[in-house]
């Protein structure tokens, strides 16, 4: 359980504005252990999705990795050609996206979309591929899989489509499954079913997960450890229990306060004042300073480094250094 599967080191992602490099993701460092589920939380635009796309090698032009390394066990993934990367995508690394309605190709059957992933990576015959695809449909809880195999995406409900997406992702038994807000677009009841399915699949296979969400309730259910991102940087990382009991970073505290609960039923919902800063504005200091209740003059001088508080917890805030 302590062995690293994925090691991301000082990952910086951005684009060039003329000759000026603009970084959106800054010095992101984290690791995912074998069999572990790492949660990434943060509000829209904090760099959660970009981190996952960088790991998959799916950054859309003009975005690119400007610095840092992404290691999958012994393999350095940054700098691999598209062709080399295709050997890992879908095989060792798989990804499930937020929108099940648009993430499946509308003109191919569900079955053929699962089979495609199998046929690319595994030396199976046609009939074996088909058999495996039907098994996968069964595995993800799609009823009458033989029949659904020939269905087109528009014939399935949102929840069923997300199950089909999961089947595609699990086709080659990946070592790391990245989930980018996999239940955000679904009804709450369906959401619970999908989370349960994912948890049981993980238990069976022992794979690692990178689970991206802005829903802290979902995070509590799924993650072992969490990294909190803000403005393209990691501001805090801790096991989920510790983070829940005692959030250290003022931003994490703000996130926690923003969860509506029964106690706050008749009050105004809390929201962190201000908005996420534009990555194009270069600020020398802490990016959260402008919205932070504890901000001081020093906060604006330099970016606070991520400082280890104990063996499995770090925080990037001047209050703790």
């Amino acid at each position: 359980m302590n062995e690293s599967l994925l090691d991301v080191n000082s990952l910086t992602v951005g684009y060039r504005d003329g000759s000026r490099p603009i970084s959106i993701l800054n010095q992101v460092t984290f690791r995912i252990r074998k069999g572990e589920t790492l949660g990434i939380v943060g509000e829209s635009g904090c760099g959660k999705s970009m981190t996952s796309l960088a790991v998959m090698g799916l950054l859309a032009s003009p975005l690119q990795v400007q610095e840092g390394s992404i290691r999958l066990e012994e393999t350095e993934l940054t700098g691999l050609s598209a062709k080399q990367m295709n050997r890992y995508r879908g095989k060792d690394l798989a990804m499930i996206f937020q929108e099940p309605m648009t993430s499946l190709n509308p003109v191919f059957t569900i079955g053929s979309q699962i089979e495609e992933a199998l046929a690319i990576h595994l030396p199976l015959s046609r009939s074996e591929v088909r058999k495996r695809a039907i098994e996968l449909l069964q595995l993800v809880g799609i009823p009458s899989p033989e029949k659904r195999h020939g269905d087109y995406p528009h014939q399935l409900s949102g929840g069923m489509r997300q199950r089909a997406m999961i089947a595609i992702a699990l086709a080659c038994e990946p070592r790391l499954l990245i989930l980018d807000e996999p239940t955000t677009a679904l009804d709450v009841t369906i959401q619970a079913q999908i989370l349960e399915l994912l948890a049981s699949l993980k238990e069976k296979s022992g794979m690692s997960m990178m689970f991206i969400t802005h829903d802290l309730g979902v995070m509590m259910k799924m993650a072992d450890r969490v990294i909190v991102m803000y403005g393209g940087r990691i501001v805090e990382t801790a096991p989920i229990a510790k983070l829940y009991e005692e959030p250290l970073h003022p931003y994490t505290q703000g996130l926690w306060k923003a969860i509506p609960s029964a106690d706050t039923l008749n009050q105004r919902l809390y929201s962190i004042p201000g908005t996420v800063p534009d990555p194009r504005e270069e600020t020398p200091g802490c990016r959260f300073a402008g919205r932070c209740p504890h901000a001081r003059q020093e906060c604006l001088a330099a970016v606070p480094p991520l400082v280890p508080m104990d063996e499995d917890r770090s925080v990037a805030c001047i209050l703790y250094s």
Partner: peptide
């Protein structure tokens, strides 16, 4: 730019 093209790439389909 459709999501399902990203899905295809995520499966390891060649360009």
């Amino acid at each position: 730019n459709q999501d399902y093209i990203r899905t295809a790439r995520a499966k390891g389909v060649s360009e």
